[in-house]
Computed example of a mutant assay.
Amino acid sequence: MSSKILIIGACGQIGSELTYKLRALHGDDNVIASDISYNNLDIVNSGIFEIVDAMDYKSVKVCIEKHNVDTVYLMAAMLSATGEKYPMKAWDLNMTSLFHVLDLAKAKFIKKVFWPSSIAVFGPTTPKEDTPQYTTMEPSTVYGITKQVGERWCEYYNEKYDVDVRSIRYPGIISWKTLPGGGTTDYAVEIYHEALKNKEYDCFLSKDTALPMLYMDDAIKATVDIMSADADAIKIRSSYNLAGISFTPEEIAASIKKHIPEFKISYTPDFRQQIANSWPQSIDDTMAQKHWNWKHSFDLEAITEEMLKQLKPKY
């Protein structure tokens, strides 16, 4: 019998692209997309879709049993900037949904779990350059706190109950297909839209704020790669560091100017600047490279070229 996959939070920025990729790999009938509402009709209409509330254990369990699901990708979460506005909601959603899935795996309803962590687990006291896999983690955002705690629980469930849970710490993710969802690295997507639409962009981070970034295709590739690796190869069950490239708003603007010379950028840092200041500027992902052969493909020039090419018809 072919294995069935459930994506919880399939309508989000990463969830939607992951859904298309997994359907291409495993067949439309073997990948069930789910979310709390029908807010992404492309996903809803592209294959099997279920309304699932990640906060409701029964809702998740019923869907898993109905479709004989054995692998769950839990992509539902409240992100960093939104989480600062609604701290308790972010805590509840991010933690409760994880416990539901880990408990279902512990009870053997599912065999394998993917749960994304984030560079938000790091904080102001973490080394900024080439942040190592094992280091000081004192996150200063609600989102980061939920991700750090989540990592501890993933490792705990793996050690105590042999739950096959796998995780990567996503950096900022850049995609042309979906609009950003309330994160601190959103500027790196907005800037391309504004460059094409208005030839100018007012950035909410200062010009020299370097952050680790990854093009969406690379993020999806990493997610698929870690999940298809042999269980023995996955030596870290909290979450793997993942790096693509690091750049500043000034550098991304310069790469856009090569294609749109009249593009102008201004800077008005807001509350997200403080969040960005607490995060690493570059990440060491040697462990991911060593354990499951991770490697990124897109550099900044390639990202800019692809983003402008794909978004141009829209404007």
Rank of each mutant, 00 (worst) to 15 (best):
V62M: 09
D92G: 12
P87W: 06
N94Y: 03
I51S: 09
L41F: 02
P87Q: 07
S59L: 04
I64P: 14
N45Q: 14
K106L: 01
T82E: 08
L104R: 04
E50M: 11
Y86D: 09
V52Y: 11
N68Y: 01
A105P: 11
S80F: 02
V69T: 15
E65Q: 15
V69L: 12
T96V: 13
V69A: 13
A107M: 10
K58C: 11
T71N: 02
M55W: 04
C63P: 12
N68A: 10
V62E: 15
S59W: 09
I64Q: 06
E50Q: 12
K85L: 08
F49M: 01
L79K: 04
K58D: 15
A90I: 02
E84D: 05
V44N: 09
E65P: 00
H67K: 12
S80D: 11
L98F: 00
V101K: 04
V44L: 04
T82V: 15
K58Q: 15
A105E: 02
M95R: 00
L104C: 06
N94R: 04
S80T: 14
D56S: 14
V52G: 10
T96R: 13
A90K: 03
G83A: 04
A81N: 13
E84I: 05
G47T: 10
V101I: 12
V72R: 11
N94I: 05
M95D: 02
Y73I: 08
S80G: 14
M78W: 01
D56P: 07
V62I: 14
L104M: 14
S80R: 13
V69F: 06
G47H: 08
L104Q: 08
L79D: 07
K106G: 02
K106V: 00
D42S: 14
E84Q: 10
C63W: 07
M55G: 00
A90M: 01
M95W: 00
G47V: 07
H100V: 01
K89F: 07
V101P: 14
Y86C: 06
A90Q: 00
C63R: 05
N40H: 14
A81M: 08
N40T: 07
I43Y: 12
L41D: 08
L74R: 00
W91K: 12
K66V: 09
A76G: 08
L79S: 04
L104W: 05
Y86H: 12
H100R: 04
E65V: 09
V72D: 06
I64K: 10
H67V: 03
V44H: 11
V101T: 13
L79R: 06
N68R: 08
A90E: 03
D92T: 11
A81P: 03
A107P: 00
E65N: 10
L93F: 02
A105I: 03
Y57C: 04
S59K: 09
Y86E: 13
M95I: 15
G83V: 04
C63D: 09
E84R: 08
G47Q: 08
N40V: 04
K58A: 08
A81R: 13
D92K: 11
E84G: 07
F49P: 15
I51E: 11
A90W: 00
V52K: 12
L98G: 01
L104D: 09
A81W: 03
V44Y: 08
V101A: 11
M78L: 13
Y86R: 09
D56M: 12
A81S: 15
M75Q: 15
G83C: 05
N68I: 01
I48P: 05
D103E: 15
L79E: 00
V44G: 07
D56A: 11
